[in-house]
Every structure is written in structure tokens, then in C-alpha cells.
Design a protein around this nucleic acid. Sequence first.
DNA 1: TATGAATGAGAGTTCATTCAT
DNA 2: TATGAATGAACTCTCATTCAT
Lengths: 220, 220, 220, 220
Amino acid sequence: MSITIIRLPVRIQVGIFMARKPTQKRAKVTVDAIIEAGFIAVAESGIHGATTRQIAEISGVGVGSLYEYFKNKEAIYVAMNERFVDDILEMLRKFTPELVRVSLADLVKKLLYLFRDLLQMHNGVYLKYFRYSRYSPQIESALMELAMHYVMYNPKYLRVQNMMTINYICINGGIYSVTRHLSSPNPNMSFDELIDGLSRMTTSYVNAELELALQLPYAE
Amino acid sequence: MSITIIRLPVRIQVGIFMARKPTQKRAKVTVDAIIEAGFIAVAESGIHGATTRQIAEISGVGVGSLYEYFKNKEAIYVAMNERFVDDILEMLRKFTPELVRVSLADLVKKLLYLFRDLLQMHNGVYLKYFRYSRYSPQIESALMELAMHYVMYNPKYLRVQNMMTINYICINGGIYSVTRHLSSPNPNMSFDELIDGLSRMTTSYVNAELELALQLPYAE
Amino acid sequence: MSITIIRLPVRIQVGIFMARKPTQKRAKVTVDAIIEAGFIAVAESGIHGATTRQIAEISGVGVGSLYEYFKNKEAIYVAMNERFVDDILEMLRKFTPELVRVSLADLVKKLLYLFRDLLQMHNGVYLKYFRYSRYSPQIESALMELAMHYVMYNPKYLRVQNMMTINYICINGGIYSVTRHLSSPNPNMSFDELIDGLSRMTTSYVNAELELALQLPYAE
Amino acid sequence: MSITIIRLPVRIQVGIFMARKPTQKRAKVTVDAIIEAGFIAVAESGIHGATTRQIAEISGVGVGSLYEYFKNKEAIYVAMNERFVDDILEMLRKFTPELVRVSLADLVKKLLYLFRDLLQMHNGVYLKYFRYSRYSPQIESALMELAMHYVMYNPKYLRVQNMMTINYICINGGIYSVTRHLSSPNPNMSFDELIDGLSRMTTSYVNAELELALQLPYAE
DNA sequence: TATGAATGAGAGTTCATTCAT
DNA sequence: TATGAATGAACTCTCATTCAT
């Protein structure tokens, strides 16, 4: 019953939310199974509809075992979020060197395709989970950082003003549009069209700002 | 205790969720009070934290009375959503004649300011509610329709291709960015900056597409 | 099922432990039934063995109703204790005028017989409950006060020193011996013999202290 | 972590509650550690609050090991009670020769001081435990026996009637008053005053009964 | 019509006990 | 022998819903 839905290496976090430190391999397996079951349960029933019994059943362990490893239900959700965020951060870390070297249009495209792939892993549990997890400041920070790295490698964009606002709009718009599209049963356009649009939106917006900046001879 | 938070006329919808058709004026007042209390309760406790008892208390009626007018709790939420959607549609309807006559940049700005005003009415209950209510297809349709009206009045945009995708991106991006910003305790930019950015994003994106279209002499 | 085990008038205390104020007669009946059931449950299963379900069952109400009137299980115990203490205080108040007029030997006897009668009311639920309820400071205070009243009416005892210690010993010894005897399945003496003994113990102890005091010409 | 709190030799009782007979020295050490941990756990958390996990942790053995030596949790409590009773009986046995030779006043005093010392050993775990362990018939029997021994050595008391009742009252009153005083955070008198009072209570009571008996020329 | 007391299914959580290692 | 991960029955408490008044 317990299917392995997470392939990335996971470092078990022993924090205040972990009831006891799982030192043995068997324990680690159980912890993983619980977290995985958490994603499935939330995907099935929503974050408020998911119950500890449901998580226990999906993970194939008794309810008592949940509390061997997690202080309470909330701690399971915290661990799930940690894993989700870690997976995204890991993805960003992994592809940053490649991403900073491509054109802006391709950056947007590649990034959003990567994002889609991650959300659709494991029968789309991440996608469903993401709807309940207002995306964390960590992810936003990481994306901001990626943008900054990109600008470093492409210094012409340094002249662009309102970088913060541009990032905010493009990141939010990109992520939200993609998530919404993926969740939509009958989208009015193909995913490729959406990505293409987002890419063009970003480039035209950034270029417009860039041109504007270039017209100001002594820019701030 | 029950503050009137909705001023627009509300047409009581008698559907499958409505337990009885309230023909009397007094009944309508009660229904309104319940719906208003629902928004306040959700704003206070979240959509899953709000309880029927809480709604009854805020609305000043007994719990039993809730079930006189609504089949169950879900029906109250449905009615709340109907009212929320109606308010937005009403707003759009009201301002459409004005909006179609301004520049694209101003359209975006005016629209998002209007949207903000609506979300912030009544101590922001709509804003909090909106976070739980993935915005309905009706709203999206209405916005699409507004966009079409705008194009009718500004026929140069008729040449733009991928209208659907552009709308999707700009609407989603605009609404989501605004909502997120309003909900953020410590935003990194001012609301005006955000609106300005969204306006420029839209115009540059649309203009870029327009120019592209103009370069194709015999476009589809 | 709900038997009325308390005959004394009970003033429903609306305090922090009462979840809601029962204004209606029906509610008061339910509250009483719950408290009565609490005594029976504790008598049956002990104070830690008694469960909310058990109390609900005995009182003939649903578990939910327990929480209509009591914040939690502990609040039921608090109400039980209040009622128990009130009953004892009421008894003391009622008989004080009579008790202060009898001899010391009779005071002890009458008091302990009264105490026994109260503990054996209602199938002895109070007796069993008392074993779990380290008797409250209020009861001790009331007994101390009775002793003081007695001394006022019998001023010869004013010369006795160590009044505090004497009271402590006689009260504790009396109550504990009686309670223990009543709880004992096969006592080695009759209850009358025990009472007689406690009466003689008290009088001889007090008289000895009194004589000692009289031998000191210039007391204290 | 496991502190040795019991110094007296303990005879491991192999009864229905003992899962296996520990023949080896190491096993005996473990059993001792568990029993000691039981007292500490009960002192910390009360007899119902103490958990097997807690006992295992304090004793430094695994939870599984608890069940190697004890059939269940109750068996641990039984063993604890046996040890507690044994310690008291041992104390009584040890001091009986000395106690029977002193005056009645001193007998009471010495006995109660001994009792206090035992209850306060090991950070008072016995004192806290005693509140949960209605003292056993064995202890009462042993005290009765001591009283009989005392009368043998002091034959003048042979004439006292109602010996049983006197013992019952003085023993119960003494033990309960002392226990209560020791457990009280803010006692109204010093411990020495209490002991003095109990001594005087006993002597005056017994002497009164003695005199009464002497007045009856041909008493039984 | 309007009420709120009553309900009980089901939630999260605990812990004595078991058993594979 | 000794372990502690695993268990699940049973606990306390919540809350949408009902119904007698």
C-alpha cells in the first residue's frame, strides 16, 4: 500500500515537532511512509479533511505509530511542508547553473516546466498539496535569489528599475497561472501555450522596463 | 451586533440548498444576517474553523434558525459565495461603461483599485474570505467579457493573437498578486507600486503581442 | 435511570467551569443529572477510572450534553466537589446551634453520626467519593469554626492551650477513622464502639489539657 | 540516573504477578531498579499519571524489559506496595525491642518520628506514594501486634478495655495526622507540636480508660 | 416561526502491551 | 536476554444537525 512517492534524498529533520529521534533504519522508513501518506491524504481529502486515521491507514501503520514520530498531526504537516519546500529548493539549486545561462524567455519556460514536473510527480499529490500550502517565503526567497543570480550573469538587466516589483509580479503570476492551469479540468488553452504566454509576458515586460531605463541618460 | 456589511441588493437564490423560500421581509433580513455573519466568522476563524454556533451567535439568531433558511452549513457557504460573486459581477457591470473608454494602462489600474476596494470593504472580510474561495469561473468569465468589451471599443487590439492566453495570464496574475499583497503583513513594495507594475506588465505584454501581430501583414 | 440522590437544595454555580448558563428548568435537571451521575461513576470506577461516556450513560444524556454544561471533565469534578462541600457545610450550618449546646462527648458523637449519615446517603456514593477527595480546606475551616463556636458557648475550654493542635488531631482522627471504618468490609468493632471511643478520646484529651492549664496559676 | 533508594534487603516475591523468576543477580538489580523507578514515577506523576514508559526511562531499561519481570503495570504497583510494606514491617521489627521499654508517651513519639523518617526517605517518594496506597492491613496488624507487645511489657495496661478501639483510633489518627501534616505545604503548627499533641492525646485517652477500669473492682 | 438543548459520529491523542529483532 | 517500534482500544472533546417546545 505504501508507495514510494518521493525520490529525492530526504534528511529527516529532528526538531521540536519530532516526538522521538528515529535512529534505526526501520524507523526512518516509517517516518517516510507517514509523510508520503500525508501528501496522499491531503490530496484526497484536503488539508482539513485529512485525518490521522486516514494517514495511518494509507501509510500502513497504526495510529499510535504516528505519534511515535510526530508530536501531533500538525507536526506531520510541518514535516510535509519541509519536504515539499526542500524538494523545490533542491530543484532550484540543481538547475540554477544551467538556468542563468539561457535567455530570459527560456529561463521562464524551463523554470515553469521544471515546476510543472515537480508538481505532477507522484500522481500529482504535490499539485494538490500546493493548493493548501500558500507557498512559503523560503520558496519566494529562493526564486528571488535565482532572479538575482540571473541578473548577475546578464548584467544588462541591472539597469532595470523596480526589480522587486517585476519579480513579484512575474513569479506570482507565473506560479499561480501554472498551478491553476494544471488544476483545471478543462483549460481553455494548452499548457504549452500558457508557458509560451508567460515567457512572452515576462520578456516584453522586462524589455519595456529596460528600454525605459535606457532612455534615462543618467539613471539613478 | 449584526452589522450590515453588504449594501447591494441581493436576490435570494432559491436552489437545492435553500431549505425554504423566505417570502417575508423579516425572513430576508434573517438570511442576510446569516450570510453576513458567515463572512465575519470565516474572517475570524477561517473557513474550516468557523462553526454554525459562531455564525448563529454573530448573526443574532439561534442555531436552529440557520437550518430554517439553509439546508446545512455548506449551503451557507454557497450563499456566501453567491453574494461575493454577485458583488463582484455587480461592480464589473457598473463600471464597464467607464472602463472600456480608458487606456489599457488605466483599465488595469482602475480595475485593480476597484477590486481592492471591494476586498477591503467591511473590515476586509471579503479579502479573508477570498483566500478560501478559489475564484469562481463566473468571475473569470465576467472579466473575460470585460476584456472583450474593451477590445470592441479599442479595435486595434483585435489583431492581437492569443487573446485568451493573454487574458488568462493578466487576470490571474493581477488578481493573485493584488490579493497576496493585501494579505501580506509586510509587503516589500507599496500597493501603488504593485498596481503600477501590473499596469506596465499588461501594457508591455499586450503591445508586444500587438507589434508582433502588425509585423505579420496578413495575419489570420 | 437518573435517580435523584441529592435532596438538599442546590444552587447551580455559574462560574468559569460552567460552559453555558442553564437558564431553563430542563437544563438545570440535566446539570443535576450529570453531577449525580458523576458521583455514581466515581463510586463505581474511581476518580480516574470514571469516563465521560460512563457519566453520560449513567446520567442518561449524550456525551455532547456533558460539554453543553461543563467545560470539560474536570469541571464536572469541580461541580461535584462543590456540591459535596456545600452539603457538608449546609449540614454543619444547620446543626451548629444544636451542637454547641451539648456536652463535648455528645458533640463528637452527634457530629460523627451526622457525618456518617451524609456519607451513607444515596447508596454511599459520597463515602466512596470522599476517598478520592482529600477533604477540602473549606470543610476543615468549617469544623474549626464549629469548634470555636463551641468554645464560645463553653468558655471553660478557653483556657485550653494548643487548641489548634487539638482540633487538628481530633478532627482528622475522627473523620479518618469514621471514613475508614465505613469503608471497611469487615471492621473489628461496631460503628457505635468506634464513635464511643472517639468521643472518649476527645474528652479525655481535652480534659487532660484543661487540667494542665488549670494547674498553671497564671496561664499563658 | 537510577538512584538506589531502598537499602533494606528485599525478598523478591514470586507470585501470580511475577512473569518470571529472576534467578540471576543482574535480574534482581533490574527488578529493584524498576520498583524504585515506580516510586519515583508515582511521586512525580501520581499513581494514575505514571506511565510504563516513564518507569522504564527512570529505571534505565527498555519498556519491553518491564514485562520480562512483571506481568503488567499493576504487578509493578503490587511489588512496590510489597516493598513499602516490607520496609515498614522491617522498621517495626527492628525497633520493637526498644519501643516496648519506653513510656507510652515516648512510644507514640518515637514511633511517629520513625514513621516520618521512613516517609521522607529518598526525597519523600514514600510520602507521596503513601497518599495513593490506603495503608495495608498488614501494617495495621503489625501495629496492633506492637501494641500488644507493649501491653505485655507494661501489664498495667492489661486492664484497659476496648483495646481494639483505642488502637484503631490512635493508630489511624496518628498515621493520618502525620501524613497529612507532612504533605501540607503550609501547616498551621510545627511537626513537633503535632507529635507532642498526638502523644498527649494517646496518653490521656489511655489513662482515662485505665482509670475507668480501675474504678471497676471486678472488671472483666 | 424560532429556539437551543440534545445528540453522537468522529476527531486527535494516549499508553499498556506485544513481538520481531 | 533485552529491546523499542508498533499497536489499537479507549480516552476526552467538538460540532453539524435535529426536534420538542
